[in-house]
Amino acid sequence: MTEAVPTVVSQAVPAKGRGHKQKSKRRRNDNVMGYLFISPWLIAFLAFTLIPIIASFVLAFTNYDVLNPTWKWVGLQNFERMFTADPRYIKSVKATFYYVFAAIPLRLAFALAVAMLLNTPRRMVSSYRAAYYAPSIVGGSVAVAVMWRQIFGTDGLINAILGTNVAWLGNPNTAIWTLIILAVWQFGSPMLIFLAGLKQIPREFYEAAGIDGANGWQQFWHITLPLLTPIIFFNLVMQLISGFMVFTQAFIITGGAPLDTTLFYALYLYQRAFVSLQMGYASAMAWILLAIVAIMTALVFRSSSYWVFYGSQEE
Protein backbone atom coordinates (compact mmCIF):
# COMPACT_ATOMS: atom_id res chain seq x y z
CA MET A 1 0.00 0.00 0.00
CA THR A 2 1.22 3.43 -0.67
CA GLU A 3 0.28 5.09 2.58
CA ALA A 4 3.09 6.84 4.33
CA VAL A 5 4.46 4.23 6.66
CA PRO A 6 4.84 5.99 9.95
CA THR A 7 8.47 6.87 10.00
CA VAL A 8 9.04 6.36 13.66
CA VAL A 9 12.64 7.26 14.07
CA SER A 10 14.00 4.50 16.20
CA GLN A 11 15.45 6.37 19.08
CA ALA A 12 18.43 4.30 19.89
CA VAL A 13 18.59 3.52 23.55
CA PRO A 14 21.56 5.30 24.97
CA ALA A 15 23.71 2.33 25.69
CA LYS A 16 25.51 3.94 28.55
CA GLY A 17 27.60 1.54 30.50
CA ARG A 18 26.47 -1.46 28.49
CA GLY A 19 29.26 -3.86 27.82
CA HIS A 20 29.87 -5.79 24.69
CA LYS A 21 28.81 -9.02 26.33
CA GLN A 22 25.49 -7.67 27.43
CA LYS A 23 24.75 -6.60 23.87
CA SER A 24 25.39 -9.97 22.28
CA LYS A 25 23.43 -11.67 25.03
CA ARG A 26 20.58 -9.36 24.26
CA ARG A 27 20.80 -10.16 20.58
CA ARG A 28 20.65 -13.87 21.27
CA ASN A 29 17.70 -13.28 23.51
CA ASP A 30 16.03 -11.33 20.73
CA ASN A 31 16.49 -14.26 18.38
CA VAL A 32 14.84 -16.62 20.83
CA MET A 33 11.98 -14.27 21.61
CA GLY A 34 11.49 -13.40 17.96
CA TYR A 35 11.06 -16.99 16.95
CA LEU A 36 8.89 -17.65 19.98
CA PHE A 37 6.51 -14.89 18.95
CA ILE A 38 6.31 -15.85 15.31
CA SER A 39 6.22 -19.60 16.05
CA PRO A 40 2.44 -19.94 15.56
CA TRP A 41 2.75 -18.53 12.08
CA LEU A 42 5.95 -20.44 11.33
CA ILE A 43 4.44 -23.78 12.34
CA ALA A 44 1.25 -23.14 10.37
CA PHE A 45 3.28 -21.91 7.40
CA LEU A 46 5.37 -25.07 7.31
CA ALA A 47 2.53 -27.48 7.98
CA PHE A 48 -0.30 -25.93 6.01
CA THR A 49 1.42 -23.92 3.30
CA LEU A 50 4.99 -24.85 2.47
CA ILE A 51 4.78 -28.63 2.75
CA PRO A 52 1.41 -28.78 0.96
CA ILE A 53 2.81 -26.63 -1.85
CA ILE A 54 5.72 -29.00 -2.32
CA ALA A 55 3.37 -31.97 -2.15
CA SER A 56 1.08 -30.30 -4.66
CA PHE A 57 3.98 -29.82 -7.03
CA VAL A 58 4.88 -33.51 -6.80
CA LEU A 59 1.23 -34.54 -7.20
CA ALA A 60 1.01 -32.53 -10.39
CA PHE A 61 3.26 -35.10 -12.05
CA THR A 62 1.27 -38.14 -10.88
CA ASN A 63 -2.13 -39.59 -11.61
CA TYR A 64 -3.01 -39.62 -7.90
CA ASP A 65 -6.61 -40.42 -7.15
CA VAL A 66 -7.92 -40.76 -3.59
CA LEU A 67 -9.90 -43.86 -4.45
CA ASN A 68 -7.14 -45.49 -6.43
CA PRO A 69 -4.06 -46.24 -4.34
CA THR A 70 -1.96 -47.48 -7.27
CA TRP A 71 -0.94 -44.09 -8.50
CA LYS A 72 2.17 -43.56 -10.52
CA TRP A 73 4.48 -40.93 -11.93
CA VAL A 74 3.18 -39.65 -15.25
CA GLY A 75 5.64 -36.90 -16.04
CA LEU A 76 4.17 -34.02 -17.98
CA GLN A 77 1.12 -35.98 -19.04
CA ASN A 78 -1.29 -33.93 -16.92
CA PHE A 79 -0.10 -30.69 -18.44
CA GLU A 80 -0.22 -32.14 -21.92
CA ARG A 81 -3.74 -33.38 -21.42
CA MET A 82 -4.88 -29.99 -20.16
CA PHE A 83 -3.85 -28.14 -23.26
CA THR A 84 -4.41 -30.79 -25.91
CA ALA A 85 -7.06 -33.25 -24.77
CA ASP A 86 -9.34 -31.39 -22.38
CA PRO A 87 -11.62 -28.95 -24.22
CA ARG A 88 -13.42 -28.13 -20.96
CA TYR A 89 -10.14 -26.93 -19.51
CA ILE A 90 -9.59 -24.55 -22.40
CA LYS A 91 -13.15 -23.32 -21.97
CA SER A 92 -12.56 -22.70 -18.31
CA VAL A 93 -9.43 -20.66 -19.02
CA LYS A 94 -11.32 -18.61 -21.59
CA ALA A 95 -14.27 -18.03 -19.28
CA THR A 96 -11.99 -16.93 -16.46
CA PHE A 97 -10.04 -14.45 -18.60
CA TYR A 98 -13.27 -13.07 -20.05
CA TYR A 99 -14.62 -12.59 -16.55
CA VAL A 100 -11.45 -11.01 -15.16
CA PHE A 101 -10.98 -8.63 -18.09
CA ALA A 102 -14.58 -7.50 -18.03
CA ALA A 103 -15.31 -7.38 -14.32
CA ILE A 104 -12.15 -5.81 -12.96
CA PRO A 105 -11.87 -2.70 -15.16
CA LEU A 106 -15.59 -2.07 -14.68
CA ARG A 107 -15.36 -2.55 -10.95
CA LEU A 108 -12.40 -0.20 -10.63
CA ALA A 109 -14.02 2.41 -12.87
CA PHE A 110 -17.16 2.40 -10.73
CA ALA A 111 -15.07 2.46 -7.57
CA LEU A 112 -13.15 5.51 -8.72
CA ALA A 113 -16.17 7.36 -10.06
CA VAL A 114 -18.14 6.86 -6.87
CA ALA A 115 -15.15 7.66 -4.67
CA MET A 116 -14.84 11.01 -6.44
CA LEU A 117 -18.52 11.68 -5.93
CA LEU A 118 -18.20 10.94 -2.24
CA ASN A 119 -14.98 12.84 -1.63
CA THR A 120 -16.51 15.68 0.34
CA PRO A 121 -16.70 16.25 4.07
CA ARG A 122 -20.49 16.65 4.24
CA ARG A 123 -22.34 14.71 6.83
CA MET A 124 -24.69 12.90 4.47
CA VAL A 125 -21.72 11.32 2.77
CA SER A 126 -21.05 8.73 5.44
CA SER A 127 -24.49 7.24 4.93
CA TYR A 128 -24.06 7.27 1.17
CA ARG A 129 -20.73 5.57 1.65
CA ALA A 130 -22.41 2.91 3.77
CA ALA A 131 -25.05 2.32 1.10
CA TYR A 132 -22.44 1.90 -1.60
CA TYR A 133 -20.32 -0.35 0.53
CA ALA A 134 -23.13 -2.59 1.85
CA PRO A 135 -23.30 -4.89 -1.22
CA SER A 136 -19.60 -5.60 -0.85
CA ILE A 137 -19.80 -6.96 2.66
CA VAL A 138 -22.41 -9.56 1.72
CA GLY A 139 -21.45 -10.08 -1.91
CA GLY A 140 -19.43 -13.21 -1.41
CA SER A 141 -22.10 -15.00 0.59
CA VAL A 142 -24.20 -17.91 -0.51
CA ALA A 143 -27.30 -15.91 0.42
CA VAL A 144 -26.56 -13.25 -2.17
CA ALA A 145 -25.63 -15.85 -4.77
CA VAL A 146 -28.94 -17.62 -4.21
CA MET A 147 -30.70 -14.27 -4.47
CA TRP A 148 -28.85 -13.49 -7.70
CA ARG A 149 -30.01 -16.76 -9.20
CA GLN A 150 -33.57 -15.78 -8.49
CA ILE A 151 -33.12 -12.18 -9.70
CA PHE A 152 -31.89 -13.36 -13.09
CA GLY A 153 -34.17 -16.40 -13.22
CA THR A 154 -36.69 -16.71 -16.02
CA ASP A 155 -39.50 -15.75 -13.66
CA GLY A 156 -37.23 -13.52 -11.65
CA LEU A 157 -36.97 -9.87 -10.74
CA ILE A 158 -35.16 -8.57 -13.82
CA ASN A 159 -37.68 -10.05 -16.21
CA ALA A 160 -40.52 -8.73 -14.05
CA ILE A 161 -39.10 -5.20 -14.13
CA LEU A 162 -38.26 -5.24 -17.83
CA GLY A 163 -41.43 -7.11 -18.78
CA THR A 164 -39.31 -9.59 -20.71
CA ASN A 165 -39.00 -13.34 -20.62
CA VAL A 166 -35.29 -13.89 -21.13
CA ALA A 167 -33.41 -16.89 -19.79
CA TRP A 168 -30.45 -14.82 -18.57
CA LEU A 169 -28.82 -17.79 -16.89
CA GLY A 170 -29.58 -20.25 -19.65
CA ASN A 171 -28.22 -18.23 -22.53
CA PRO A 172 -24.48 -18.72 -23.18
CA ASN A 173 -24.13 -15.06 -24.14
CA THR A 174 -25.71 -13.56 -21.05
CA ALA A 175 -24.95 -16.02 -18.25
CA ILE A 176 -21.41 -14.82 -17.64
CA TRP A 177 -22.63 -11.22 -17.56
CA THR A 178 -24.89 -11.95 -14.59
CA LEU A 179 -21.72 -12.92 -12.72
CA ILE A 180 -19.82 -9.89 -14.01
CA ILE A 181 -22.61 -7.60 -12.85
CA LEU A 182 -22.52 -9.28 -9.47
CA ALA A 183 -18.79 -8.58 -9.26
CA VAL A 184 -19.12 -4.98 -10.39
CA TRP A 185 -21.91 -4.41 -7.87
CA GLN A 186 -19.34 -5.06 -5.17
CA PHE A 187 -16.98 -2.18 -5.84
CA GLY A 188 -16.98 -1.14 -2.16
CA SER A 189 -13.45 -2.00 -1.07
CA PRO A 190 -11.57 -0.42 -3.97
CA MET A 191 -13.91 2.56 -3.56
CA LEU A 192 -12.86 3.03 0.07
CA ILE A 193 -9.21 2.70 -0.88
CA PHE A 194 -9.65 5.31 -3.63
CA LEU A 195 -11.40 7.60 -1.16
CA ALA A 196 -8.46 7.35 1.24
CA GLY A 197 -6.15 8.16 -1.68
CA LEU A 198 -8.21 11.14 -2.83
CA LYS A 199 -8.07 12.62 0.66
CA GLN A 200 -4.27 12.57 0.47
CA ILE A 201 -4.10 14.84 -2.57
CA PRO A 202 -3.14 18.31 -1.36
CA ARG A 203 -5.88 20.83 -1.96
CA GLU A 204 -3.32 23.40 -3.03
CA PHE A 205 -2.79 21.51 -6.27
CA TYR A 206 -6.38 22.11 -7.31
CA GLU A 207 -6.33 25.68 -6.17
CA ALA A 208 -3.24 26.38 -8.21
CA ALA A 209 -4.74 24.64 -11.24
CA GLY A 210 -7.97 26.56 -10.76
CA ILE A 211 -6.07 29.85 -10.79
CA ASP A 212 -4.38 28.75 -13.99
CA GLY A 213 -7.81 28.23 -15.50
CA ALA A 214 -7.90 24.44 -15.64
CA ASN A 215 -11.45 23.08 -15.76
CA GLY A 216 -12.78 20.11 -13.81
CA TRP A 217 -11.97 17.60 -16.51
CA GLN A 218 -8.44 18.90 -16.95
CA GLN A 219 -7.92 18.83 -13.20
CA PHE A 220 -9.07 15.24 -13.08
CA TRP A 221 -6.86 14.27 -15.98
CA HIS A 222 -3.72 16.12 -14.89
CA ILE A 223 -3.92 16.05 -11.09
CA THR A 224 -6.29 13.45 -9.72
CA LEU A 225 -5.54 10.59 -12.05
CA PRO A 226 -1.71 10.81 -12.04
CA LEU A 227 -1.62 11.15 -8.26
CA LEU A 228 -3.94 8.19 -7.87
CA THR A 229 -1.97 5.85 -10.12
CA PRO A 230 -0.15 4.16 -7.20
CA ILE A 231 -3.55 3.36 -5.71
CA ILE A 232 -5.00 2.25 -9.03
CA PHE A 233 -1.98 -0.01 -9.31
CA PHE A 234 -2.52 -1.45 -5.84
CA ASN A 235 -6.23 -2.04 -6.47
CA LEU A 236 -5.52 -3.61 -9.83
CA VAL A 237 -3.07 -6.11 -8.38
CA MET A 238 -5.39 -7.06 -5.52
CA GLN A 239 -8.42 -7.40 -7.80
CA LEU A 240 -6.50 -9.40 -10.35
CA ILE A 241 -5.37 -11.94 -7.79
CA SER A 242 -8.82 -12.44 -6.33
CA GLY A 243 -10.50 -12.29 -9.74
CA PHE A 244 -8.80 -15.41 -10.98
CA MET A 245 -9.98 -17.36 -7.94
CA VAL A 246 -13.70 -16.60 -8.17
CA PHE A 247 -15.62 -19.66 -7.09
CA THR A 248 -18.68 -19.48 -4.84
CA GLN A 249 -20.82 -17.26 -7.07
CA ALA A 250 -20.36 -19.42 -10.15
CA PHE A 251 -20.80 -22.59 -8.13
CA ILE A 252 -24.18 -21.47 -6.80
CA ILE A 253 -25.58 -19.32 -9.59
CA THR A 254 -24.69 -21.13 -12.78
CA GLY A 255 -22.68 -24.19 -11.78
CA GLY A 256 -20.56 -23.57 -14.87
CA ALA A 257 -23.48 -23.82 -17.26
CA PRO A 258 -24.61 -23.10 -19.95
CA LEU A 259 -22.19 -24.88 -22.28
CA ASP A 260 -19.37 -24.30 -19.77
CA THR A 261 -19.41 -20.57 -20.48
CA THR A 262 -19.15 -19.82 -16.76
CA LEU A 263 -16.96 -22.76 -15.84
CA PHE A 264 -14.39 -20.64 -14.03
CA TYR A 265 -10.97 -22.03 -13.34
CA ALA A 266 -11.47 -22.53 -9.62
CA LEU A 267 -14.82 -24.18 -10.26
CA TYR A 268 -13.45 -26.65 -12.79
CA LEU A 269 -10.51 -27.37 -10.52
CA TYR A 270 -12.91 -28.11 -7.69
CA GLN A 271 -14.88 -30.48 -9.91
CA ARG A 272 -11.75 -32.32 -10.97
CA ALA A 273 -10.30 -32.53 -7.46
CA PHE A 274 -13.34 -33.18 -5.31
CA VAL A 275 -16.02 -34.54 -7.62
CA SER A 276 -14.08 -36.75 -10.01
CA LEU A 277 -11.29 -37.05 -7.40
CA GLN A 278 -8.47 -36.67 -9.94
CA MET A 279 -6.16 -34.98 -7.51
CA GLY A 280 -3.01 -35.30 -9.59
CA TYR A 281 -4.64 -33.60 -12.54
CA ALA A 282 -6.21 -30.95 -10.32
CA SER A 283 -2.83 -30.23 -8.72
CA ALA A 284 -1.37 -29.65 -12.15
CA MET A 285 -4.26 -27.27 -12.81
CA ALA A 286 -3.54 -25.47 -9.54
CA TRP A 287 0.06 -24.88 -10.59
CA ILE A 288 -1.01 -23.44 -13.92
CA LEU A 289 -3.38 -21.16 -12.03
CA LEU A 290 -0.51 -20.05 -9.83
CA ALA A 291 1.58 -19.42 -12.93
CA ILE A 292 -1.20 -17.41 -14.59
CA VAL A 293 -1.69 -15.25 -11.51
CA ALA A 294 2.07 -14.77 -11.13
CA ILE A 295 2.53 -13.81 -14.78
CA MET A 296 -0.41 -11.41 -14.75
CA THR A 297 0.85 -9.77 -11.57
CA ALA A 298 4.37 -9.57 -12.96
CA LEU A 299 3.04 -7.93 -16.15
CA VAL A 300 1.21 -5.32 -14.13
CA PHE A 301 4.31 -4.68 -12.06
CA ARG A 302 6.43 -4.44 -15.21
CA SER A 303 4.04 -2.06 -16.86
CA SER A 304 3.86 0.12 -13.78
CA SER A 305 6.98 2.09 -14.64
CA TYR A 306 5.11 3.42 -17.68
CA TRP A 307 1.98 4.59 -15.99
CA VAL A 308 2.35 4.68 -12.23
CA PHE A 309 3.40 8.09 -11.03
CA TYR A 310 5.13 8.26 -7.71
CA GLY A 311 4.78 11.81 -6.53
CA SER A 312 8.09 13.51 -5.97
CA GLN A 313 6.64 16.21 -3.78
CA GLU A 314 7.34 14.07 -0.75
CA GLU A 315 11.05 14.59 -0.26
Partner: peptide
Protein backbone atom coordinates in the same frame (compact mmCIF):
# COMPACT_ATOMS: atom_id res chain seq x y z
CA UNK B 1 1.31 -16.21 0.88
CA UNK B 2 -1.11 -13.34 0.25
CA UNK B 3 -0.90 -14.02 -3.45
CA UNK B 4 -1.00 -17.77 -3.26
CA UNK B 5 -4.13 -19.43 -4.67
CA UNK B 6 -5.64 -21.70 -1.99
CA UNK B 7 -5.99 -24.32 -4.71
CA UNK B 8 -2.27 -25.02 -4.50
CA UNK B 9 -2.52 -25.95 -0.82
CA UNK B 10 -5.96 -27.40 -0.50
CA UNK B 11 -5.50 -30.72 -2.29
CA UNK B 12 -2.53 -32.03 -0.25
CA UNK B 13 -4.21 -30.68 2.87
CA UNK B 14 -7.31 -32.61 2.02
CA UNK B 15 -5.38 -35.82 1.40
Amino acid sequence: TLMLPVQVQIIPQYI
